[in-house]
Amino acid sequence: MNVELRRRIFQQFAATGEPPEIAADELAALAREHAVVLDGQGRIAFANPFATSSAPYTVITPTRVRFAVCVWDGLGVAAALGEDARVEARCPDCHNQLCLEVRGGELVPTDTVVHFLVPAGQWYENLDST
């Protein structure tokens, strides 16, 4: 596994909100190792916890907006950055906007709930649906 390349991807996502340009053969190798998930055009869709702007979870920090594919990754972006953050998404049932806030390293109490549909034993079989 190309750890240095993975570090570069995370750093670029953190700095700009988008992934770096990487050669197709290197991306394909990372995808085979489940280190990234590619979109239909062969570009990085996400490298957990970071995702491109089409992802449903928005992570707003004092410095920039980033994106995540799930609530775990949304909080993961906040944890990786070590900044206060607001994770926004819509409830999959009622479609109202929901929000989680991290302030001073703590999660602000919330009445919302987290649901994992897929057991951990199957997480890596299809990262897209997990």
Binding site: F10, Q11, A14, N48, P49, V71, W72, D73, L75, G76, V77, A78, A79, A80, L81, G82, L100, V102, L107, P109, T110, T112, V113, V114, H115, F116, P119
Partner: peptide, 20 residues
């Protein structure tokens, strides 16, 4: 599995806190 966001925050810090 259904659980509280506070648990997920604890997990996120451990799982992703060193990612950068």
């Amino acid at each position: 599995a259904l659980f509280a966001p506070a648990q997920l925050w604890q997990l996120a810090k451990r799982w992703y806190g060193d990612r950068l």
